[in-house]
Amino acid sequence: MAALEQHIEPDSQAAGRIVDDATEAAAKGLREWATGAGLTAALNGWRSSVKALEARLSAEKAALAGTNRLFLGTDGRIGSQFSAVSPLQQSRLSEY
């Protein structure tokens, strides 16, 4: 999850901004041409895609956090069951 928070989300946002700035400048420069209108339409589609990606990444991050909590809770419960075993029944692996 660290990679998602530290790299994927910020890098995706940065990539979205770079395209926004460059394409917006080109669209303004060509606004009197059909190309300018096409660039504006493409930019709107790009922004929509970036928003959808950010929402998906956020949902994936929440799902990973939930899975992490589930596994930690299950691991703790299983571990507590083993710690209830009497010392005579424990394996020598418990010493490690």
Rank of each mutant, 00 (worst) to 15 (best):
T23H: 00
A25V: 08
L53V: 13
L4S: 03
W46S: 04
Q6G: 08
S91F: 03
A41F: 07
I78K: 02
Q90D: 02
A59F: 00
A63P: 01
K61N: 06
T74F: 07
M1E: 07
G73A: 11
I78H: 04
Q81N: 12
V85Y: 12
T74L: 13
G66Y: 02
I78L: 12
A59I: 03
N44M: 10
N68V: 06
R56G: 14
G73H: 10
S49M: 06
G79Q: 08
F82K: 02
V85E: 09
K61V: 01
L53N: 14
I18D: 12
D20I: 00
L53I: 13
I78D: 03
T35R: 06
I78C: 01
A55Q: 14
D20Y: 09
I78A: 11
G66Q: 13
F82G: 05
L57P: 03
I18S: 11
A27I: 02
V50T: 09
L57K: 08
A63N: 08
W33Q: 10
S58I: 02
S83M: 10
Q13C: 01
F71R: 14
A34L: 11
D75R: 10
Q90C: 05
S86A: 15
N68M: 06
A63V: 07
Q90F: 05
S12C: 07
K61E: 04
G66S: 15
L39D: 01
S12H: 07
E9T: 12
G73W: 09
D11Y: 06
L88V: 10
A63C: 00
E9G: 00
V50L: 07
G66M: 08
S94C: 06
T35F: 11
G45K: 14
Q89C: 09
A22L: 06
E24P: 00
E5P: 00
S83N: 10
L93D: 10
A65V: 10
S48K: 10
L39N: 00
E24G: 12
T67W: 15
N44F: 03
R47F: 01
P10G: 04
A65M: 07
Q6H: 11
L4I: 05
A65R: 13
G66A: 15
F71H: 14
P10N: 06
E95Y: 14
E5W: 06
R77Y: 07
Q13W: 03
A34N: 15
K61I: 00
S83A: 13
Q90L: 10
L4A: 02
N44R: 14
R69P: 04
